[in-house]
Amino acid sequence: MSKTDLKEYWRRNIRIVLILLSIWFFVSYVLSIFFVDALNSISIGGAKLGFWFAQQGSIYVFLIIIYYYVRYMNKLDKEYDVNE
């Protein structure tokens, strides 16, 4: 594979990693810690939303992030012909 392709592949990898890490940071730190009090004024079921994100929701989001990354990278590896 050519040098430019390799650069392009790496650039797209970094881009998706940065997007997903922003979501990771937003859910676990912004929603669950920094703005937990504001979110707690909203209720879902029997729980305050901020509290729920801190103790349940963030973990589900972590799972979705990894699932999406695995799928995205498997496709990207094939597209640039670097898959195993």
Partner: peptide, 21 residues
């Protein structure tokens, strides 16, 4: 109570870093 979230998120969120980085 709420403060327990440090363990719940702290001991699961690291797997996102492991998988991505």
């Amino acid at each position: 109570g709420y403060d327990g979230a440090v363990y719940l998120m702290g001991w699961t969120g690291g797997y996102v870093l492991l998988a991505l980085l």
